[in-house]
Structure formats: C-alpha cells, structure tokens
C-alpha cells in the first residue's frame, strides 16, 4: 500500500509574503458588497476580478480574498474547484476553449481540436512553452448555430474549419471582442511566464477522467 501521498500540513503560502492583491483590486471587490446580502456572494465576482488581473488565482490570493469576504480559505478553494473557469495555476496569455458538445463534435469539432493540438504542440489543459496559449475543452458554448466553436479568451470564433486554425492562431487580435467593455470586469490577463506549479487539477478535465480509466 502506498503511504500518504499528499501532505496538507505544509503551507502553500509564505506567511511573510507581501499581499498580491492591490489595494485598488480589494476596493473593487468591496465595492460590490452593497449588491448582495452576504459578503460571500461577492466570491464569484471577486474570483473573476482576480483571475482577470493576475491570470490565475494563486493560493495567496485565495487567502486574501477569504480575508476580505470574512470566510475560511477552504471555502474559497471549495468554490473555485467546483467551476471550470478558474485556474489555480498559471495559464497562457490566451485560453483557447474548444467546444466538445454534440453539435460541435458532429460538425467537425474533433478535427479542429486535433489540429489545435498539433499546431500548438500541447494537449488538453496544457500551456505552450512560450506561455502564449492554453488549451481546454468545455461543454456547449451556446454557439451551436455556428458549430464548431472556439473561444479565445472572450472572443467566440464561429464555424471554425481545420484550415482556419493556423490563421486564427496567427492573428494577434484573435481574442478581441467588438463590444465596448464594461468596466466592471477587466479583459482577462494571462500569466506572461506560465510555469505549471502544483495547483489543483481543474474539475471537468476530461483528459484526466480518461487517463484514469
């Protein structure tokens, strides 16, 4: 029998590290308090803001968010790990989310995903060595009328064909949306130097589910 494999007594945070959430970001989080009955309800917006600002949500940020919302840090990781959108370890500047649901899959999504993997040289839930792209798959993006779909950060690419992949990847503006942004949430940032540190695995990681079979 293999013995203990994870030691949770080890702190993930350096207690002497300076705060990583800026005062302005904390203020922005607090400014949402009046919208809800509880402070905890601000958790999801806060996580969005932090991920948009830092690229991912490191342990230290979880702790700081917990302090702002007056909850236990375990409640923060509990919530984060439930949702697929949040990253607990660095990701690429741009996250490519390929739809894997039924319309996209039957309309050629698999070939597009394979092409993406080939051109990027990475698998699902991986990041290119230069830190430019991370690749994930997600269930239906509600763009099935334009299947197969890809989301690059905020931008939905529709009716993507295998031969479009190279062009889309090469386009610097492939993540720009045409809408005027609301200042409630910033444009998502990536981690410029994305090195995979030990974070929690993401939830609906199908690759992993498959790997364990």
């Amino acid at each position: 029998m293999s013995w203990i494999t994870v030691n949770r007594n080890e702190p993930a945070i350096d207690p002497n590290a300076p705060p990583i959430l800026s005062a302005a970001l904390c203020e922005k989080i607090r400014s949402l308090f009046p919208r809800y009955d509880t402070k905890r309800a601000v958790l999801l917006p806060a996580l969005h803001m932090v991920q948009d600002g830092l690229g991912h949500i490191p342990w230290q940020a979880m702790k700081e968010i917990a302090d702002i919302l007056e909850i236990h840090p375990s409640d923060v990781i509990d919530t984060i790990s439930f949702y697929t959108h949040f990253w607990t370890h660095p990701k690429g500047m741009k996250v490519i989310t390929a739809c894997r649901s039924v319309s996209c899959e039957t309309m050629g999504g698999v070939a597009v995903l394979l092409e993406l993997k080939k051109q990027l040289g990475i698998g699902e839930h991986e990041t290119t060595p230069d830190g430019r792209f991370s690749l994930v798959t997600e269930e239906c993006l509600a763009g099935c009328d334009h299947a197969p779909c890809l989301l690059i950060n905020e931008k939905l690419h529709r009716c993507v064909k295998v031969e479009d992949v190279g062009r889309i990847l090469a386009d610097d503006n492939n993540d720009r949306i045409s809408q005027k942004r609301s200042d409630l949430f910033d444009a998502p940032a990536g981690d410029s130097k994305s090195k995979d540190v030990s974070g929690l695995e993401s939830t609906s990681d199908v690759a992993e589910m498959k790997a364990s079979e």
Binding site: R35, Y36, T38, R40, A41, V42, L43, L44, P45, L47, H48, L69, D75, D78, T79, F82, Y83, T84, H85, F86, E138, E139, L184, F185, S204
Partner: peptide, 26 residues
Amino acid sequence: YVHRGAGAYVCGEETGLIESLEGKRG
C-alpha cells in the same frame, strides 16, 4: 445586477443557481 457564473451546467438548475449566486459551489 448582472452576476457572472464560472462554468458549471448545474448552475442553470434554479437552486444550483441560487447557491452559486451566494458564492458557493453550485
């Protein structure tokens, strides 16, 4: 107020949505 989810189908279920809005797992 517009409140953004974070990627979970089950948050479309009305009480899952409520839990999620409260900042919890859905």
